[in-house]
Write a protein that binds this DNA or RNA. Structure first.
Lengths: 173, 173
DNA sequence: GGTCGATATAAATAATTATGCAAATAATCC
DNA sequence: GGATTATTTGCATAATTATTTATATCGACC
C-alpha cells in the first residue's frame, strides 16, 4: 500500500522533533554562509547558538542532510550542502510509492503524470497501466525508465494514485 | 621559486610522475563507474589493478582530485568526483546551447519541452538531463533525435534554459 | 496512569582519514 | 658525471568521523 508521506507530517511532531528540525535548519544556514572544515568547528558555532549537541549527533545530522566533505584548492576542506537541498515542491502524496519494486516514483505536473521506473522497466509497466486503467488513462508513452501517463479529462491526481495503488502496490514491506 | 604549472609539463615528466598521473586517472575511472564508500575499498581495487599504494597516498590523491565523500540515501557513503561543482557561464537564451554539438534546438509547448538532437543522440542526452537536473525535471522520454522533457510543476522556461546552459553549453574556461 | 514502540541523544569506542617526517626517487644545473 | 633542489611515497601517528550501546524522551493506545 502506498501511504501519504508528504512533508506536512513534520509540522505535527513533538518538541524533540522540532528541536532536531530546528537544529538541522541552523546547520544548513551555517554551512551555507561559512566555510566549515571540520565537525568540531561546526560544533563550536552551534554551541554559541545554544545548540548543545555532541559530535556524534552532528555526524548523524550531516549524514541526514547529505552534507559532503570536499577538498578545496587551498588545501583545506569544506562541508557542502547538496545543491538540490532547495525545498523540493512535493506535489502530492506519492512519495511512498518509492518502496515499490520496479516503480521508483510518481509525480505530477499539470494534467500529466510522470512515473519513474528502474531502467528498462518503463515499457513493460506502461503496458500494464494501459491495460489496467483504461478508464482513468487515455494513453502512455514510455522511455527507458520514465513513463508519461496522460489521464482522461476530469481524472484527479488522487484518482491516479488510487488506481496505481490498486494495481501495483505490493501487499507489504 | 616558480615552477612550470601549465598542463604541458605533465607530458614531459618522468616515470614516477607518469605513474602518479596514471594512478589519478585510474582512480577517476573507478570512482566514475563504482560506488566506493571508503578509501580502503578503493585501495583494494587499485591493488587488483597493479597500483600499489598506501592509504596515505590515496588520501592525498583524493584531496588532489577534490573528491568529496558524500552520504547516500541508503545510509552508506560515496566518494564523488567534482564534475558537477564547476561553475558555468549562464546565458539565458537558448542560442548558447543550440550551438553545442549534439543538441540542435530547444522548444516549448505549454509545460512541455522538446529537445531536438542529432540523429541517435537523444537517449544519451536524455540520460544526462535526467541525471543533472533532477530538481527541475520530473523525467524524460527519448526517441531517436527528439527528447520530451517534463519539468516539475513551477519550473519556468527560463529555469529550463538556464539548467540546460549550465549543464550542456560549452564553456570557455 | 502504565505500557509499548519509536525516535533522539550522549558516552565511549571503533573506524576511517589526514598529515608530519624521513627516506627514496627524479629533475635541474653546473 | 655529481651536487642540488623538488617531488613522491610509506610509515607511524594524529586527527577526525562514524557507529555501537545504553538511556532518555515522547506519543499513541488502552
Amino acid at each position: 500500500m502506498f501511504y501519504a508521506l508528504n512533508n506536512n507530517y513534520l509540522e505535527l511532531k513533538n518538541n524533540k522533533m522540532k528541536n532536531k528540525r530546528n537544529r538541522l535548519q541552523v546547520i544548513s544556514e551555517i554551512l551555507r554562509s561559512n566555510v566549515i572544515g571540520s565537525q568540531d568547528e561546526l560544533l563550536k558555532i552551534l554551541n554559541e547558538r545554544q545548540c548543545d549537541v555532541t559530535q556524534a549527533t552532528l555526524s548523524r545530522d550531516l549524514k541526514l542532510l547529505k552534507v559532503a566533505k570536499t577538498p578545496l584548492s587551498n588545501g583545506t576542506y569544506k562541508y557542502v550542502l547538496p545543491s538540490y537541498n532547495k525545498p523540493m515542491p512535493t506535489t502530492s502524496s506519492s512519495n511512498a510509492i518509492v518502496s515499490m519494486g520496479a516503480i521508483l516514483n510518481i509525480d505530477f505536473s499539470g494534467q500529466l503524470v510522470v512515473v519513474k521506473t528502474k531502467p528498462g522497466y518503463a515499457s513493460a509497466i506502461a503496458w500494464d497501466i494501459d491495460n489496467k486503467a483504461n478508464y482513468e488513462v487515455l494513453g502512455t508513452i514510455a522511455g527507458d525508465d520514465t513513463i508519461l501517463v496522460i489521464p482522461r479529462e476530469g481524472i484527479t491526481r488522487e484518482d491516479i494514485l488510487q488506481m496505481m495503488n490498486q494495481n501495483f502496490a505490493e501487499s507489504q514491506n
